[in-house]
Nucleic acid binder design. Structure first.
Lengths: 205, 205
DNA sequence: TAGATTGTTAATCGATTAACAATC
DNA sequence: TAGATTGTTAATCGATTAACAATC
């Protein structure tokens, strides 16, 4: 219904609204959200309008109503099971993350080739990749976090897709090749830092 | 010289080129890069052209030359010092990261309010935020990774900016308010997962 | 009523693609 | 030469903003 750039904005609005709510506010205006998110007020109204969210001509938007609609759009109403593959530095940090529940996400299992990782030290059971299909089927998982080393990322992602994964949050510094029906979001700290440096002008050309 | 959307593409090209180089290739064509990066061949040629990078009418682009130009653009020639603030799950993982050197980045210090964190267990010295100005001045730092808890993120970012930081890679789930001259890149695992789910259509509306 | 705000339609702007000329 | 590829200019497409009408 909405495209990638709109989705990103909707998520921004949601963060701002949650903050407003926490501050005790009941309603808000497009220009208040604009200030908070750096998105223009017209665009905000247009986005809401397109998502079928209506405000009051004079009284702005109801925060709870807005959050309710966004909740529907992003499916926070139904629980979503996810898995993580690779328990290195990043993987271990992410598996211990507590915030999944906030978004109604449920981390159900982790996977690592190293048998030494398959201990009770983690908040979820840790398996060998051999058990992947079983876990995916049991918990109806369609999204995975990929946090394996660079050299095995492509191969592992292929295996994930083969077993039914359709969304990958990729922490490996690799441009994954996946079939059309699979979506990859990359998180790359180095790349983000580089871009920051470029745009603040640390680098003189 | 180039804007945010172009920078992102250039970084993609760079990743693909590094891969090609590792495979032993010497030259490449816009359509090969297109296949690897999912950016159209025309756009790739246009980007290169705009950056003053020239190919050979018949013989494509020289990979080393291309990488050299990108290296200049992204300032990999000069070492860039960075710091990290907050040594929780994510912060600890990031400070142990080895890949900074690849991009000519140098993690010089970490900061945490908890004195217990100020041990030798980390690859860089860990200070109290009181020492921030000193470190920033000594190492000429302009970019910081922010990995503190949500509730202190805004306040900490203010303090960072006050002491000269102009680029923040923010891992806290907060829309930071910063002055115009400061750039923030957000990394938010929850948000990325949500968007993946939305776009692969896990959520039925 | 006057003023503030939403919501929509038309205009603008920027980014991408199509077409094609240049040339190795 | 013919074919492949780059590089540029014009056309298209999509996203954002401007203008304004609607209304509380």
């Amino acid at each position: 219904m909405v495209n990638l750039v709109q989705t990103k904005r909707l998520q921004k609005y949601r963060m701002a609204l949650l903050r407003f709510k926490k501050m005790g506010l009941k309603k808000t205006f497009s220009h208040s959200l604009s200030e908070e998110t750096s998105v223009s007020a017209v665009l905000i109204r247009k986005d809401f309008s397109q998502c079928g969210i209506r405000g009051k001509r004079r009284g702005g938007y109801d925060i709870d109503l807005l959050l309710g609609e966004l909740k529907k759009i992003f499916g926070h109403e139904k629980e979503q099971n996810i898995i993580i593959v690779g328990l290195g530095n990043i993987g271990s940090a992410l598996v211990k993350y507590e915030d999944y529940r906030q978004s109604n996400m449920n981390m159900v299992a982790a996977f690592d080739i190293d048998p030494a990782k398959r201990t009770r030290r983690y908040p979820v059971p840790v398996y060998s990749l051999e058990n992947l299909r079983e876990v995916i089927d049991t918990f109806d998982v369609s999204v995975a976090i990929l946090a394996v080393p660079e050299f095995s990322a492509q191969e592992t992602s292929r295996y994930l897709v083969e077993n039914g994964i359709r969304g990958i949050l990729n922490f490996a510094p690799v441009l994954l090749k996946v079939p059309d029906h699979v979506l990859v979001n990359n998180v790359n700290v180095m790349i983000e830092l580089e871009r920051l440096m470029y745009h603040i002008g640390v680098i003189q050309d």
